[in-house]
Nucleic acid binder design. Structure first.
Lengths: 329, 329
DNA sequence: CTGAAAGCGCTTACAG
DNA sequence: CTGAAAGCGCTTACAG
């Protein structure tokens, strides 16, 4: 069953390939009789004609694909939602978003070489060599951390830091003075985790409070209970814990429960992400929501700006993060 | 900055494009002097040459892409993990997996036309017209429900049914005789939900138990509490609830808590998926795990079998689903 | 061992 | 209003 080409459509409708192309790509510049248009369209449908993307890309030198490289770490509902918004926004401009789950062992170059995307959007910064190679190939390269307005590009993590600050501010405003930080043990998010913890540290320092007591917490009760014992044994004892994210916070809640402590009376807990399970926890989990919709729109705007060539960049969105107060604090 | 082509590499290394192609695609059939090979490779690196995927695909008539169409519904950690395994398995065969988040408003045809994949793998069955069009274009079409060995292809939902049965079996083996079913209210998963509920129904019927009492449960405490009241007011009263998935189950746990009922003493609860939050819940949630790794491997095998042409299909994996017993039952 | 040539399917100046 | 022709970058028989 050979491929149906524009030649087939041309033959079937009794016109040249040129005319087929003009009709099907909807060029208004060239006037073609309504009757001819009709015949071409009908023939195309009858034959089930689908233009070859490869040929089109080769000819025009550009595809309509935007490649999203997901990070190495487990993506949760947050990134998921973000992608949805991104897909929707870019679809309005005729761009198709394709996502690559980054945990494959193959080098990045094979990936973009295999698709010839118009733009590549990463969720973590790319290696300089990769950036060079992609730019060389005419691909726009972006990463989500570029949105950060930080002076030092090596530490483009302003919003992560801000998350840690927000968590701490909320806990401190509740009267807590000795904060614990529940660090995620997944090495793939160490970078993010460090930034959030750093934010908490700075906030405490600026307020003259003792440094937050960081403890690694696995996603199981035993690990969390062990951390809880250390926090409670500290002097002054920890009375509030900020967690790397909601899942870690759920583990902390479970650990507190296992140790017979009450939340928030003995120890308050705050997470990050506002996953569905957060508001269903016992007690309902206070957390920091990430303004996903706004972020998705902003990333889409960045991609479009890059594609439209040099010009002004879209303005950074304002406050993305927000404390969602529930019963755990 | 024009694109670097194989002609550039040829010129730079003083050979023909033919030789460049032979060297770079690693054809062993054609013997080329080591010195020439070396020169070509060096020139390619020096110029930052990346072969055009579009040209290659056009020429060879096939790409190395496998397109995964995600369902319309919120994908959780389960599908996420599944994709990881799939990506890994197919990468070993030189195939690149690209994922499309299906919630875009554009028609499916634009999608596969934009990428010319070798194969398309859907998580829900495709419309017959779409299947025809893709096959016409030489694309292998698969969907994950094809793995089901059901007589009626219109109801390829055997494993969903089985999940409902497993949940029910577990509850009944715990001595419960009146089961409640917590149905997800997201219309996008209505199909799955109906199958799981049907499984529970059949299991009850075969055991001569009263029909399970289905109640819609949103992901919030109020909705779950309302369902709990109805379950408890029934005669005979419901003493165990199977939920559509873990998140719904977490809502049910919260609803029971809100109504002052004890789990599992007053009402037992079982979910599906074994998400991270399940074992951190209060009490730790009994659930049905989905054998994700096995499923991922099987889907990869299906794709490879389809690509290798007509022949025997990979055997269906055995028992994928397993009850993970924790404290909520 | 290496090169000239054809052709994958498309779009678009250009010439009628 | 419509067609013949060129060319995007690649691979691969084929001829040296």
């Amino acid at each position: 069953m050979p491929r149906v080409t524009s030649s087939d459509v041309a033959r079937e409708s009794g016109v040249s390939r040129t005319t087929v192309s003009y009709v099907l790509t909807g060029k208004d510049g060239v006037a073609i009789s309504a009757a001819t248009r009709q015949r071409v369209h009908e023939a195309a449908v009858r034959l089930g004609y689908a233009p070859s993307a490869a040929a089109r890309t080769l000819r025009s030198g550009r595809s309509d694909l935007v490649l999203c490289i997901l990070p190495d770490w487990p993506i949760g509902p947050v990134i998921d939602t973000l992608l949805d918004h991104l897909v929707g926004e870019l679809a309005q401009r005729g761009l198709t978003v394709l996502v690559h789950h980054g945990r494959a062992p193959r080098p990045l170059s094979e990936l973009w070489r295999a698709v010839t995307p118009r733009a590549v959007l990463g969720f973590t910064p790319f290696a300089p060599d990769d950036v060079r190679a992609m730019r060389q190939a005419g691909i726009q390269v972006l990463d989500t951390t570029m949105a950060e307005d930080v002076p030092d590009p090596g530490v483009s993590s302003a919003s992560q830091t801000r998350i840690g600050r927000l968590q701490t501010q909320h806990l401190v405003s509740g009267g807590h003075r000795r904060i614990g930080y529940a660090v995620c043990t997944d090495p793939r998010v160490a970078h993010f985790g460090a930034d959030r913890l750093a934010g908490a540290r700075r906030e405490c320092a600026e307020r003259g409070l003792p440094e937050p007591l960081a403890q690694a917490v696995h996603l199981d009760v035993g690990s969390a209970a062990a951390a809880v014992r250390i926090w409670r044994a500290a002097r002054p004892a920890v009375t509030a814990v900020a967690a790397y994210n909601d899942e870690v916070a759920l583990a902390v809640l479970a650990g507190l429960r296992a140790e017979g402590l009450a939340t928030p009376d003995d120890v308050a807990v705050i997470g990050v992400d506002d996953i569905p399970a957060a508001r269903l926890a016992a007690p309902a989990l206070t957390t920091v929501s990430q303004g996903i919709q706004t972020q998705g729109r902003h990333h889409a705007a960045m991609v479009l700006a890059a594609l439209d060539g040099p010009g002004e960049l879209p303005p950074r969105p304002g406050d993305l993060h927000e404390v969602v107060v529930r019963d755990s604090t």
